[in-house]
Simulated assay, not measured.
Amino acid sequence: MPDARRTDAVLLLVAIVWGSSYLAAQTATAALPVLVVLFARYALSALACLGLVAGRPGRGAPRWWTRDEIRAGLPLGVTQAAVLIVETYGVAHTSAANAGLIISLTIVLTPLLDRAGRRGGLPPAFFAAAGLCVLAVGLLMSGNGFHAPRSGDLLMLGAAVVRAGHVALVGRFTVRRSIRPLQLTTLQTLVGTALFLVPAAGDLPVLAHADTATWAQLGYLALFCSVFAFLAQTWAVQRTSASRASLLLGTEPVWAATVGIALAGDRFTLLTGLGATLLVAGTYWGQAVERAHRTEGSHAIAEAASTAGASAGPAEEDLTAPDLNKDAVRRSAALPGA
């Protein structure tokens, strides 16, 4: 029981850290250009990850990267950078609470993109949940009354779509491949650092004049919201059920709203408060429907193979048995903060 409570506490801490990342990103971009913030965040994350990789013993495996890790890490590094640039510009032009809530749409968008080109559709209940989320976003964007949505809200909506595509690609690039999370994360941070170096180069001298508070925000985004959160999430998900991990990590938008209201002075009207409630409810509902549908499908495939007299070896078993904890890691990547 103490171990279970400790695991739950770690997952809840990850959700809180990710929820607070929107305000941290908003504060950093108020002091520095967005591209400089992204470069600094990636560079600090890369240095930390490289230190961790170099400090770990080989244990019979390559210390740096395998061919599979490079093949997955390079394109995923590009898509992750695309997610962060849209998110960071978005959070700079909307409230931290709205940013954290709108990006949670990724949870219901990811299954739609993940099933593109595959047989079998999602049940009607999933689309009902998605419709509820769309209504909720409309209420959030209305602010104090129905009007044209803010540019930041639209950017966060776009970021949710881009992130859903990124998470779907994570699944396709890593399925049935031996890929180490730390090595994959390190490669992604190196790709992001390289991508933002040239666009941010002209403004990099401003970092020399950044105050202590700004550097603290950058360090928090890099070391806590990126490196710590990902590694802690991976550690905890391996020690609990997928459903419990998803439930705790899914509280991120609640923490984003809480931090925005408590520290940034974000105010919720009756309409936006209703929108926030409906969005959290809709994403939880959609996630539960998709998980149940996927699990039933996996069981049906396994039963069909058994009925047909298939004698599955280790490779075939990996194709039919649902590896829910690994899937929880992939799906929780849908909400890794700003």
Rank of each mutant, 00 (worst) to 15 (best):
Pro124Lys: 10
Leu52Asp: 14
Glu303Asp: 15
Leu135Ala: 15
Ala201Lys: 00
Gly90Thr: 09
Ser45Gly: 13
Ala4Arg: 12
Thr283Cys: 13
Ala334Ile: 00
Arg41Pro: 12
Val191Cys: 03
Pro336Asp: 03
Thr214Glu: 05
Ala210Trp: 00
Leu132Ser: 06
Thr27Met: 10
Thr277Val: 14
Leu324Tyr: 05
Ser95Phe: 04
Gln183Ile: 01
Leu38Asp: 12
Ala81Gly: 05
Thr29Ser: 13
Ala159Cys: 10
Trp64Val: 05
Val14Glu: 09
Ser226Asp: 08
His299Pro: 03
Val17Thr: 15
Leu105Gly: 12
Leu154Trp: 09
Ala300Val: 02
Pro314Ser: 10
Ile301Asp: 14
Ala24Ser: 14
His209Glu: 14
Gly120Met: 05
Pro149Met: 08
Leu263Gln: 10
Ala99Phe: 01
Val167His: 06
Pro75Glu: 02
Ala245Trp: 00
Leu263Asp: 08
Val36Phe: 08
Leu335Gly: 09
Arg118Ile: 03
Leu112His: 01
Gln217His: 08
Ala338Glu: 06
Leu52Thr: 15
Ala9Gly: 14
Leu335Thr: 09
Thr277Pro: 04
Gly275Trp: 09
Leu157Pro: 02
Leu218Thr: 10
Leu76Arg: 01
Glu317Gly: 13
Ala24His: 07
Leu270Ala: 15
Ala81Thr: 08
Arg294Ala: 15
Gln183Cys: 08
Arg56Gln: 15
Tyr22Cys: 08
Ala216Arg: 03
Pro75Gln: 00
Ala305Glu: 14
Thr189His: 05
Arg41Ser: 13
Thr186Val: 01
Ala315Thr: 12
Gly260Gln: 03
Gly265Val: 07
Leu35Gly: 10
Ala328Gln: 06
Arg115Lys: 11
Leu157Phe: 05
